[in-house]
């Protein structure tokens, strides 16, 4: 996989199917669904997520030699994606409204399935966060990254990550009613 980083100038792969292209195919086949799930959590909308992944893959393809030269091409491509989401936030935000009005119709608020309701509400609350905060939360909990890794991905300081993260969690907490079931622990730990 790394061998192709030595391939010629940008013009070269315009010509036809070089080895770079084959590896790119493999990457897309293997990783696009994971990327898509990440994009879906980030945008809350299937169409927007698809757009986001499509554009991410295009960028990755254009920088493919850089991508495959990374220790973790996966992480590098995800980084492209989260930054793209942050940059194009307006474009992706507008679609979220549709999705969330829709599900709002479907699920009755006083649903007996409290847990599902809670998760649903958490997702809603998450999707109401500003994109930057949301990105931090998603990278932390969905992709399981550390503060330092998140900071590197977003090119911000770890301190900023922590403050964004703390504010995001405050907001989530305030927008989601206390978890109905096993919440005594949350009351003490939740405030921290």
């Amino acid at each position: 996989m790394l061998g192709l980083s030595t391939e010629g100038k940008p013009g070269a792969d315009l010509g036809g199917a070089g080895s770079a292209e084959i590896d790119f195919h493999d990457f897309v086949a293997a990783r696009s669904s994971a990327l898509f799930r990440g994009a879906f959590v980030l945008t809350g909308d299937r169409e927007a997520a698809e757009d986001l992944v499509q554009e991410t893959l295009e960028r990755a393809y254009r920088k493919w030699r850089t991508v495959v030269a990374q220790d973790a091409p996966d992480a590098y491509v995800r980084r492209i994606m989260v930054n793209l989401a942050n940059d194009r936030w307006r474009r992706f935000r507008r679609v979220v409204v549709v999705e969330y009005q829709d599900t709002g119709d479907g699920a009755a608020p006083g649903d007996e399935y409290g847990r599902i309701d809670n998760r649903d509400q958490l997702i809603r609350a998450l999707l109401c966060l500003p994109m930057r905060m949301r990105t931090v939360v998603v990278l932390r909990y969905f992709h399981d990254l550390s503060d330092a890794e998140i900071a590197a991905d977003l090119k911000i300081s770890p301190g900023t990550v922590r403050s964004q993260f703390a504010r995001a969690m405050e907001k989530l907490r305030s927008q989601v009613p206390p978890l109905s079931g096993p919440s005594p622990r949350q009351l003490t730990e939740g405030r921290r």
Partner: peptide, 22 residues
């Protein structure tokens, strides 16, 4: 618990998505 729920919520949400072919 909030964090655990959040992790589960995100994975549930993402897992429910029908992944398009790229």
């Amino acid at each position: 618990p909030l964090e655990e729920e959040l992790v589960r919520a995100m994975h549930g949400f993402a897992g429910a998505a029908d992944v398009p072919r790229f």
